[in-house]
C-alpha cells in the first residue's frame, strides 16, 4: 500500500537522522572552524595573486605568525567564555564580565603603581573579580533574583566603579610586574595562549571530573529536581558566578598586561557579548544542562578567526559587525536544531 511505503521511507529517514545527530553533537562547531580557516586562506591568497591555482600557497591566513596572533586574540575571550560556560550551564547568564574585566584591570594597574605592593597587583585583579562575581552570585542564589537583571545591573554599576577607580582616566605602568603574561612567551608559545588553554583544561576537569561539576549540570538540567535530590542549589549558583567573576579578573590582568595600562571606560566594552557568543557557538544550550568547555574554546576561536580573517581580506569594520551578528544568530538556530534531536520527550 502507498501509505505503508511512505511510512517505511519516513522510518528510514528517521534512522538516518538518528545516526547523524550524535555526530553533530560531538563534533560541534569544529568543522565550521576548519571550513572558515580554509576559506580565509583561499580568499587571502586570491586577493594577493588574483589566480585561483596559486591561491592556497600564497594565502596569508594560515601562517604560523597569523595563527599565533589569532590564538592571542582569542585568549581573553576564551577565559571569559570559560566562566560564562559555567554560568550558562546552570541556565543563567552573566552580562557583567566586560565591566568586571575593566574594574580588575584598573585595580591591577593601580596597585602595581604602589611602591612595595606591586607584587600584589596580579592577585588583587583575581580577588577583585572573584568578589564582584560572588556579589552577583549572592544576589542570584540567595535573593533569587533573575540572573539577567542582576548582571545587567552590575554591568552598569561595575563599569561606573571601574571609571571611579582611576578617576576616569587611563592609568599606565611601563614597569608592570606581570607584563610578561601579556607579551612574553614560553617555548615560543605566548603566555596568553598558555593561560587560556590552562583555564580550559582546569574548567574541563571541574565540570567533568568533580561532584561539583555533576551538580552544575544537574542544576542546569532542572533546578527543582536538583534540589529534591539533595543538591545545594544556591551554593552551586554562588560558585558558578564566582568562577565567572574570577576568570573576568584573570581576563582583566591579561588585558592590562598586554597594554601596560587600563582604562575604566573603554576596556572590555561588549566583551560579554563575545563571551556569550563563544559559549553558544560552542553548542552549550541556553536553557542549561547541556554543553562542554571544549565547545566554548572552538566558539572563541571561530570568533577570533572571523575577526582576523575579515580584516585580512579587507572587509570593512561595519560589515564585520553585520557578519558576526549573523553567525551568532545562526548558532542559536543550530542550538534549536540540536535540542530537537535530543531525547527530551
Amino acid at each position: 500500500m502507498n501509505a505503508s511505503t511512505g511510512n517505511a521511507l519516513q522510518d528510514a529517514l528517521k534512522k538516518h537522522q538518528l545516526n547523524f545527530m550524535p555526530l553533530i553533537q560531538t563534533m560541534g562547531m569544529l568543522p565550521v572552524l576548519l571550513i572558515l580557516c580554509i576559506l580565509f586562506q583561499l580568499v587571502t591568497g586570491y586577493a594577493e595573486t588574483a589566480d585561483f591555482s596559486h591561491a592556497w600557497q600564497s594565502g596569508r591566513f594560515l601562517s604560523w605568525q597569523n595563527l599565533s596572533i589569532i590564538a592571542q586574540q582569542a585568549s581573553i575571550n576564551t577565559v571569559l567564555g570559560a566562566g560564562m560556560t559555567f554560568v550558562i550551564l546552570t541556565g543563567g547568564i552573566d552580562l557583567s564580565v566586560g565591566s568586571i574585566l575593566a574594574a580588575s584591570a584598573m585595580v591591577a594597574v593601580s596597585i602595581s603603581l604602589v611602591p612595595g605592593a606591586s607584587f600584589l597587583a596580579f592577585p588583587a585583579a583575581l580577588a577583585g573579580g572573584l568578589v564582584l562575581g560572588l556579589c552577583n552570585g549572592g544576589l542570584i542564589a540567595f535573593l533569587r533574583l533573575p540572573p539577567f537583571i542582576v548582571t545587567l545591573g552590575s554591568m552598569t554599576a561595575v563599569r561606573g566603579l571601574a571609571r571611579l577607580l582611576g578617576n576616569d582616566t587611563t592609568v599606565f605602568n611601563p614597569d608592570l610586574p606581570f607584563a610578561f603574561i601579556g607579551n612574553g612567551s614560553i617555548f615560543n608559545i605566548p603566555w596568553l595562549v598558555v593561560i587560556a588553554f590552562a583555564t580550559v583544561v582546569i574548567s574541563w576537569a571541574v565540570l567533568r571530573r568533580t561532584v561539583l561539576g555533576l551538580h552544575i549540570y544537574a542544576v542546569g538540567g532542572s533546578p527543582d529536581a536538583a534540589r529534591l535530590s539533595g543538591i545545594r542549589v544556591p551554593l552551586v549558583l554562588l560558585f558558578v558566578y564566582g568562577v565567572s567573576g574570577l576568570l573576568s579578573g584573570l581576563g582583566g590582568a591579561m588585558s592590562a598586561a598586554r597594554l601596560y595600562a587600563a582604562n575604566g571606560l573603554q576596556l572590555g566594552q561588549s566583551y560579554e557579548l563575545d563571551a556569550i557568543a563563544a559559549v553558544i557557538l560552542g553548542g552549550t544550550s541556553f536553557v542549561g544542562g547541556v554543553g562542554s568547555i571544549w565547545g566554548t574554546l572552538i566558539g572563541a576561536l571561530i570568533i577570533s578567526v572571523l575577526t582576523n580573517g575579515l580584516v585580512l581580506t579587507g572587509v570593512s569594520d561595519i560589515w564585520q559587525f553585520i557578519i558576526k551578528g549573523f553567525v551568532i544568530i545562526g548558532a542559536v538556530a543550530l542550538d534549536r536544531y540540536r535540542l530537537r534531536g535530543s531525547a527530551r520527550t
Binding site: H215, G221, A225, G289, A343, T345
Partner: peptide, 17 residues
C-alpha cells in the same frame, strides 16, 4: 520535571545523589 535529569546519562542519574 522534578525527578530525572533528562539530558544526563542513566549512570549519572542513578549516582547524582
Amino acid at each position: 520535571e522534578l525527578g530525572l535529569f533528562l539530558d544526563m546519562s542513566i549512570c549519572n542519574n542513578i549516582n547524582v545523589g
